[in-house]
């Protein structure tokens, strides 16, 4: 990693932090450019690219046709021949249209060619529920891509991290998939000015605690922190680990936390079964940390349904603070 050149910081939204990272990346390296649907004058469906086209022009902030498969393939071909594309999917759900290029080409090209090439492409996926957009615009598919060797899959949870991890992704020689929860876009946080990176593959302990560990991803980190505050009032001391990277997963930080608290809960928005929590649980079960456990592992994940439209049903589909509080209380008190 480059030297961290952190200077003054100020409050930015998560979306502004992404935009700033992309601007810095383009200023630092003329090979970097952006591709995506309506990212030019429209500014992106979530206004993440905003006015970047005015600063960098249409050659570097390229609107693509509505062609996710072809667009992703163009990004892969451009990356493998010497540029550094950042490809925005309008919604992470549209990754399903481009899985061929992501899974068969981007992820495997280096391996299939015996190391003769690298594929330094970055793909951005606005993900998650909570916007009333229903089943085809609300999914959390990070576990799908996390299942593919050759990809790196990250889920930054804060404005600080998304800027630093995006800049790390652009520097990375391999394909990096960034899942950005849409409800985080307006969240504000301290973001250092200038260039810095946050390493891919490192989890972060967001809150120290002694009684149980919650490993959470993306927006669930904030819900877990809210839950931890409520539980603190009851005398339950929760440690919150922000996973940050789905692949490669940071085993050490999780094992270390479980060693300390002896209780583990995984909280993630993707469908519970065969999801990120399954991997964390299995990883602990296979490791020496299994011996530290004083209670069964608990997973809180998305319901086994498509995301519904009705707001009450939609909320019930993914873990909420109240549910985390209750499950954590039960786990800490050994009620399970």
């Amino acid at each position: 990693m480059d030297a961290q050149v952190e200077t003054a910081s100020r409050e930015l939204s998560y979306a502004q932090a992404i935009q700033e990272a992309m601007a810095i990346a383009m200023e630092r390296d003329e090979r970097v450019f952006l591709m995506g649907e309506d990212i030019g004058v429209y500014g992106g469906a979530f206004q993440v690219t905003g006015d970047l086209v005015e600063r960098f022009g249409t050659d570097r902030v390229m609107d693509t046709p509505i062609s996710e498969l072809g667009g992703a393939g163009v990004a892969v071909g451009a990356a493998v021949t010497g540029t550094r594309p950042i490809f925005e999917f309008q919604f992470s759900d549209f990754a399903t249209l481009a899985m061929e290029q992501i899974v068969n080409q981007a992820a495997k090209m280096r391996y299939m060619l015996g190391g003769a090439v690298s594929v330094p492409v970055v793909m951005r996926f606005p993900a998650g529920s909570g916007t009333g957009a229903a089943a085809q615009h609300s999914q959390s598919l990070e576990a799908w891509l996390g299942h593919v060797p050759g990809l790196k899959v990250i889920q930054p949870a804060t404005p600080h991290d998304v800027k630093g991890m995006l800049l790390a992704a652009v520097e990375d020689p391999d394909p990096v998939m960034i899942f950005e929860h849409k409800l985080l876009y307006k969240m504000k946080g301290e973001v250092p000015e200038g260039y810095y990176t946050v390493p891919i593959g490192k989890a972060e302990v967001r809150r120290q605690g002694a009684d149980l560990t919650i490993v959470a991803t993306s927006i669930m980190v904030h819900k877990a922190l809210d839950a931890a505050e409520q539980l603190a009032a009851e005398g339950i001391d929760v440690e919150v680990v922000d996973l940050r990277t789905v692949r490669p997963m940071d085993r050490e930080t999780i094992i270390e936390s479980v060693r300390k608290t002896s209780r583990l809960m995984c909280v993630y928005e993707g469908v519970k079964t065969l999801g990120v929590g399954a991997e964390i649980s299995a990883m602990i079960a296979e490791s020496e940390a299994f011996d530290y456990l004083d209670a069964p592992i608990v997973r809180l994940g998305g319901a086994e349904t498509p995301i519904p439209y009705n707001p009450e049903l939609e909320k019930a589909t993914v873990p909420q603070v109240d549910g985390i509080v209750k499950a954590a209380r039960d786990l800490a008190k050994g009620a399970r």
Binding site: F33, L69, V76, A78
Partner: peptide
């Protein structure tokens, strides 16, 4: 599979 990749390589050539 190779067709979009070729277009990407051509985009690099143009850039």
């Amino acid at each position: 599979g190779g067709i979009p990749i070729a277009v990407g390589a051509a985009l690099t050539a143009k850039k």
